[in-house]
Design a protein around this nucleic acid. Structure first.
Lengths: 337, 337
DNA sequence: TTGTAAGCGTTATCAC
DNA sequence: GTGATAACGCTTACAA
């Protein structure tokens, strides 16, 4: 079924039919009704390929997220981002194509097939690092681009992230309020903005509380895995920590595992606050107090901005911060005096 | 950059250039070299839209998965399926478009926008139910279709699932071996094949072990949520269960939560085996013995089959079963005598 | 082994 | 308000 056939059915020209469908020019009521009737009867759908060819628009958007091994809770987080984005894009008639890159190898970014095919209207990108050099090839494609979850230093694109720094500071303050005086940080190396912001938030709080920043209490592990969390806990326990801010869910799990094994009582002997809130946080012993991000909303907001870029509206913000909050349970304290 | 321009550069015809690119007809070594050189020099990429228009192929595939609220571990599972599929499709130059439907409303399936646009080469579908009526509209699109994770009764399409029934039976046998005599089942209502198979596997084992199938020990909850797991645990505890097979990760979490709260010792007083293996299973007290599915492999296999359907090779299997296995930890027993 | 030319279904230009 | 027609970039008979 094509416009041509609709034209024949209605006795109108292809031109009029096209305009009637797209509302791109004035069409008489009568013609419009005729076209609508014919479309309903024939179940006509415009041919996407032909439209693409003429308009250079595909109504498709790509999301590029880091890839981790299966069963890593990071996947769960990005899936929620993805799904939030997908839902918003759907409202505007856009499809979402998924692409991933190995977190460890940002160089692969340019090889991403969907970018090579150059047939998407825009990109949602979770950058691997905070370095502009790494995303430069993508910026240079000249496509509408929105950064999600992590920002990039010196890049003036639109960025949608959680308020990692502020909420981390808040978490550390809560640990202090609950009696923590030797508050440890378990996070990752500072190669992307979330790692940096969470660490900075920790430092902000420690300074504000007039506590010393101690090397033995600060762990920046090379990867987000249970094993590294385990190792980090060992280190901060030996450093005499009485509280831990674990800036990633996998690291937090590993740390808690080690605490259990060493029979260190939470929160009596050590307070714990984790990052990202999953169902299992509630089942832990004791239930884990954790930072909750609104991943879905991040995806939604990012899509919203991207759609504005695509349609040519000026996007109003360079950096949008989605508030994360603390889900208060029991692991943070208060300590028994 | 178009084929026309490449033709001009090389002094060949568009036809020859096209054939040289696609390998669809014999081309002299010399011409081929010329074309390749020109392509490398100009960084030419074929125009997808034009290709689509001629070939009616988009080199895009849609995956349709049920949608749950954020932070549900089901999401994590389907993300691994998705990612396995994506990786395999990428190898063959296909992109993956994501689509979801509310688990509770299978009727929405036909409204899925990507299907309406009719511009995909195939579909990977996680059916909402085991009823053919629900997927019929999708089958009738006439597109290559592979079912993933769940099968559909009376549908002769290709289906890739875990061996839910067998592995569930195995889990129950293990509970029995560890001393369980009143083994409870916590699962969901039997509206999709995974729910059914896991329940059947439970029944198989119970019968084989000459234990009675007791109503009070069987919970089929309406949704996969922590709350329902909690409720189910209450019921089976009151029914005198000394072992629990929890056929879903969220239900398992909820059940374990209730066991903790009632200070029932695992595995001394009650054995537990869960379904799906996440990092947190290792951190639970005691570490959870659980069925591990290879979600990623399921996605990969399903894509493999779909690609065969698309390229017209006969797919060799109607039903492919991906073996799940038990990750043995401590929650299943053995009991203290 | 190569080339000519038609045609896919749209949208856009221009003329009426 | 409407219509004829060209053009987008590719694939594929058909012809040589």
């Amino acid at each position: 079924m094509s416009i041509k056939q609709i034209a024949e059915m209605t006795g109108l020209s292809m031109t009029t039919v096209s305009h009637a469908i797209n509302g791109t020019r004035k069409v008489s009521k009568k013609s419009l009704a005729l076209v609508q009737e014919a479309i309903a009867k024939t179940n006509y759908r415009p041919n996407l390929a032909a439209q693409m060819m003429k308009t250079n628009r595909s109504k498709m958007v790509a999301i590029i997220i880091p890839e981790t091994e299966p069963n890593n809770s990071t996947n769960c987080f990005y899936f929620d981002v993805l799904n939030g984005a997908r839902a918003r894009l759907e409202e505007s008639g856009y499809e979402l194509i998924v692409s991933t890159y190995p977190e460890s190898d940002a160089k692969k970014l340019t090889e991403i097939s969907v970018l090579q095919r150059r047939w998407i209207d825009g990109i949602l990108l979770v950058p691997a690092t905070d370095s502009f050099a790494d995303v430069k090839p993508i910026c240079e494609l000249g496509l509408p681009l929105v950064m999600v979850d992590r920002w990039v230093k010196g890049c003036d694109g639109i960025q949608v992230t959680s308020n990692n720094r502020e909420v981390s500071k808040e978490a550390v303050r809560l640990l202090h309020q609950a009696g923590g005086r030797r508050i440890a940080f378990i996070g990752s190396i500072l190669e992307n903005s979330t790692a940096i912001d969470r660490y900075e938030g920790y430092c902000d709080a420690i300074r504000e509380l007039n506590l010393p920043l101690e090397g033995t209490l600060i762990c920046r592990m090379p990867k987000y895995t249970l094993e590294y969390g385990y190792e980090a806990a060992e280190q901060v326990l030996n450093g005499g920590a009485d509280a831990v801010f674990a800036a990633n869910s996998m690291l937090c799990l590993g740390a808690v595992k080690r605490l259990h094994e060493r029979h260190v009582k939470v929160p009596d002997e050590i307070s714990v606050i984790g990052f990202d809130d999953y169902a299992w946080t509630e089942v832990m012993d004791p239930p884990l107090t954790a930072v909750t991000q609104d991943a879905s909303l991040m995806g939604k907001c990012a899509s919203e901005q991207l759609l504005k870029l695509i349609t040519g509206e000026t996007a109003e913000c360079i950096h949008i911060s989605i508030p994360a909050r603390l889900a208060i349970r029991e692991s943070h304290g208060p300590k028994i005096k």
